[in-house]
Design a protein around this nucleic acid. Structure first.
Lengths: 167, 167
DNA sequence: TTTATTTTGTCTACTAGGAAACAAATAACA
DNA sequence: TGTTATTTGTTTCCTAGTAGACAAAATAAA
């Protein structure tokens, strides 16, 4: 043996196995998209999760906290903290419906509306950067595949093969 | 006004805006894939990150800690903890090369080899579950698109439009 | 050589998120 | 009706991951 120790040259490494892992590819892609989010939103003091929450409430005024949690795959405990903070900041209003006094309905305040409007205005730029390496057709196809992968294309509710489901 | 408060019926909500967000779609997909990972690996005491680290070291014996960190997009601080723990568990061996005494080269121990072998044996099942909703052709296309999106198809090193880059 | 700059890994907070126990309200059931 | 089970949100504790300062070694510059 010419080389006594099997040491990689530190420049060229192989990632064969990694490329085969959908989980790894998804994780990296997600980290990149978050990076683009912060690059574009840098000055605004918001996080990706908060934005999706605000946007979902905007689209569904009066939606229940638990439904937001389920839709966005955010744990209820975390949602509880997040909403409390947003209420403190004056972005969302919470109200208890009279027909079910356990639940909490969420609506945006004026400030919340303004905030999410300002933010969504920058969405296209984030999307553009995120899929910059792809052709428009590839970007569209990627979306379609992810929607299908996530079971978001079904009109029916229960997919139930979802391992992240809280049972 | 017939309906005094614009309250959503709590069953049917719309997620129009969310579906348009690649970041959200990626996040949900990634959560699902992690869910499948734990469902299949349930009995083994390993996390997705640890598995990718072990697998990368197996493929590149003697790889430096920093290179693992960069390749897997794991922060160096976190990598430091992770490797220390793995060394304690007897899975990896660390050695300081004589030509650069700052660096640390990583190799798998016998136990590490056995561990990652047992784990990778279950990879196909995880992959199968993760892309169960897609046809084989769609799964392959999704991989291809993610690899391209992540810039992993380029042989050259620097992409540099990567916002997650530690500068 | 001496001095600055960069690289590499570690350490010390700090934050986001998760698990599990909990309380209150509702629903299901005898 | 009373009793049990489920749903809904909250609280507390814990872990994974991040940011930033740090030390040591290597490199570049004087």
């Amino acid at each position: 043996m010419a080389s006594p120790t099997p040491t990689a040259p530190a420049q060229k490494i192989t990632t064969e196995s990694l490329r085969g892992s959908l989980g790894f590819l998804l994780r990296v892609a997600q980290l990149r998209s978050f990076g683009h989010f912060f690059a574009v939103m840098g000055d605004e003091e918001v996080r990706p999760g908060e934005v999706t929450v605000l946007d979902l409430i905007r689209e569904n005024p009066g939606i229940r906290q638990g439904m937001v949690s389920k839709t966005l795959k955010i744990k209820r405990a975390q949602m509880s903290k997040m909403i409390r903070e947003m209420e403190r900041e004056g972005l969302v209003a919470r109200s208890v419906p009279e027909d079910d006094r356990r639940a909490i309905e969420l609506r945006l305040t004026k400030e919340g509306e303004a905030m999410i409007a300002a933010i969504t205005a920058r969405f296209p730029e984030i999307e553009r950067r995120t899929q910059a390496a792809l052709t428009p057709a590839e970007g569209a196809e990627l979306r379609r595949l992810l929607i299908k992968l996530n079971g978001l294309d079904k009109t029916k509710g229960e997919d139930s093969d979802d391992p992240d489901d809280e049972r």
